[in-house]
Design a protein around this nucleic acid. Sequence first.
DNA 1: AGCGCTGACTCAGAAACTTCGCA
DNA 2: CTGCGAAGTTTCTGAGTCAGCGC
Length: 596
Amino acid sequence: MGDKKIKIDEYKEIRLGGFQARSHNWWEEANPEESEEEEQQGQEWRYLEHHGVLFPPFYKRHNVGLIYNGKLITLTEEQEELCTYWAQSIGSPYENKEIYRKNFESLMQTKFEGFQLDKADFTKIKEYLEQQRLLRLNKSDEQKKQEKLERDQRELFYGYALVDGCLERVGNYTLEQPTLFKGRGEHPKAGLLKARIFPEELTVNLSTQAPVPQCKLPGHSWGKIVHRNDVTWLFSYVDSSIRKDNHKYVQFAATSRFKQMNDKRKYEKARRLKNQIDQIRENYTKKLQSDSIKERQLGTATYLIDKLALRVGNEKDEDEADTVGCCSLRVEHIKLKEDDVVAFDFLGKDSMRYNNEVKLAHQIWKNLKLFIKGKQPEDNLFSDISVDDLNDFLKKQMEGLTAKVFRTYNASFTLQQQLDLGGKLDGHSVQQKVDFYDNANKQVAILCNHQKTISKQFELTKKKINTKLECMKTYIQELEQHYKKKNPNEYEEEVQLEEGSQKKNSIFIKKFPGQHDKIKQTIQKTQEKYQKELKGLEKKEENKEIALGTSKTNYNDPRISVAFCKVHDVPIERVFSKTLRNKFIWAMATDSNWKF
DNA sequence: AGCGCTGACTCAGAAACTTCGCA
DNA sequence: CTGCGAAGTTTCTGAGTCAGCGC
């Protein structure tokens, strides 16, 4: 272990030592955003040097056959590769999706005439993959160490780029593996092959003076070399196997100066919106009663974006999943109810369902009714405006204002407001303060509709905890009976919580002490455990469909959280993971009085 | 001048992996 | 202590937004 550690340090020295790491903290400069003349002209860097990309390993033939029509058959390498990709998705929800199956079937047919998925049995390949997985899992410590070392060295080599004398972390220097495309929701292309990317398809971006990174695939070379200092990507390519214009990039990591500065700018813009929101709300409210339908739609759409934190909703192609945002809402997505209540039900980004029944301003309700009039369910609700119209209107309200700024603003504003509700929180434990923070965060997640699917394990886990709770309840009663005895004897009792399970956690041991004071203690302890377990279950149930991470990473101004932690003496680690602390390093010195 | 298309960047949840806490 | 499941964190890559450009 010792030796290897030194090797990494030496390597780090060689790779990084020659370069000056970050010479200063950009956020401590007087006016970092405008200090560089180049930036105003759209110039992102003066010097850029990097080490290229890592290509995923080529497909390795395993020669495990497929059972087709009940008979074991030998596959060609191409057939085998596709079948292996299929086997990788067995057990996932994709396996049973109609589009995924249909597309894979026709994909296979290009390599296997008349292939029918129903006739194919991938058991053997699946078994082989499982074997490989176990092999990976059960590697010796020595081997694991060796692999970690190699990973670390790769990371040092590819993971940093030299930008204007400073090293900046690269985000995704490994190209994506070929696999069957798995879209979100009902994606028409799911199940088709997402092809391997070769160096010839890549465009490399670096300084004219910088050495061109070596292309590590023998017999191959980079497609194109450019020197674009108006952009921040290191590589770009088009992954045309799924969509013609599917642009992908190798970019800098979230911890890089570029991303951090953009992040800070984003929150500063949201704060500017906060200062002007009253005037802006007044302006779009005026539009709600305009004689022009277009104006009314503009006002109404802006209201929804502001009030419900909807995304703007650009148009989508036929060959993408049918999802919508504000401007692409269709008549079928809303229901007008009594008392100015409107029910929304549509699939948004990532095909996440937005299902919300909410009371809106009376004029909004009236306008929606007007927009629906005479239209078919599949017609556009906001038929007279486009995303550009809306953003043009917003731009007139405030410099740089677009629809997405409302989401950032409303999210951060909500967090600040929720946390301010806490007042002093004196006398609370750190855990209680963290719970309070989590709850504030949760309100933001609800506003932004950040969801997660309930895990398969959830119901099982819940059942297990409930059984345990029941068990504890009777245990407490039994202990109380036991306490009443004159000379209680000491004994233990095992209770099986999960039927047929031999696992450790499924056994609850009831201990009945022989002394009265010990029994009292046990009762007390068990009651505390019961309460803790119950609270945990409640929290689990409440948060089962809510994803807290997305708002934390993308919508909450980190300075709100830092200030909260300082005021209430909560260690920042309780609120931000290591990655988040690095991403938000510019916000760590925020004063405790700071407000969004 | 207006509109459609391209390009570059931010935002998204699931899966994979790592660490934690408990019996 | 030690091994396990759960919780927390990171990786992965797909899905949005929106500016800018050319016709």
